[in-house]
Design a protein around this nucleic acid. Structure first.
Lengths: 119, 119
DNA sequence: GATATGGGTTTCCCTTAGTATAGTGGGTTC
DNA sequence: GAACCCACTATACTAAGGGAAACCCATATC
């Protein structure tokens, strides 16, 4: 009885983190969004520079993902009145709160590569 | 010149974390793998319990993802000689190294939900 | 001997995420 | 005035990921 109750509590905990994870993934799912955010952690970038930095990313996907990231408040889009008009994308303060996610993923990936390629 | 050199260095850094992130995502991409790992953080589970705990997950996907997670050394599969035969899935030591990823995602997701639903 | 449970596999289907390619519109440079 | 850069948008296609349902095998319970 006591045991059962504890198990139920654990399952509730577990369900909660499952929902939380889904909430996070909803914003960054897809092949490119995390990478866009990662690049923007290094500073503001314009459209073409973003595309150049992320290998394989086409303009249609970049355009779509930037729109979605903006809608979700993670980045801002600024049109600059420069000679040829340029557009700058930049992480919002909220966007920067994703840094730990990027960091921990990158750390794990680095360790994993060491493990695979025989440290 | 100095400035340019620094920029190049930054771009190399950036490329590195992009590759690292890709390495990590290769193992946990898809709709269900992170959730399977998350549930297993709470302890070993059998097939049916995993399926019950993760809403919407069908047996085909679960079966496929478990195989892939095992191949990548994140979980172990143990057949138990019980009355009706049961199979137990459990995180390996390596699998547990994913905990920080799950944790940081869950934390962010929780905060995000607070923000969206008007703290 | 019918039904249930655990642990899957197989087949078929379908949507959607993503790719490739081309084009637009404004401005600048050669 | 040709060609090139930036920032996209449009169109068209495709492949892979995933869902639903049926089926399989063993045990064992009614």
């Amino acid at each position: 009885m006591e045991q059962t109750r504890l198990l139920n509590d654990i399952e509730k905990d577990c369900s909660k983190i499952l929902f939380a994870i889904q909430d996070a993934l909803d914003l960054i799912s897809g092949k490119w969004k995390i990478k866009v955010i990662s690049v923007l952690l290094y500073g503001k970038k314009n459209f073409t520079d973003l595309q150049r930095q992320i290998d394989g990313l086409g303009s249609k996907m970049l355009s779509k993902d930037l729109q979605e990231l903006e809608i979700n408040g993670l980045i801002t889009r600024t049109v600059n009145a420069t000679k040829p008009i340029t557009v700058t994308y930049e992480l919002t303060e909220y966007g920067y709160t994703m840094e730990p996610i990027i960091q921990v993923l990158a750390d794990w990936g680095t360790e994993h590569r060491h493990k695979i390629t025989g440290r």
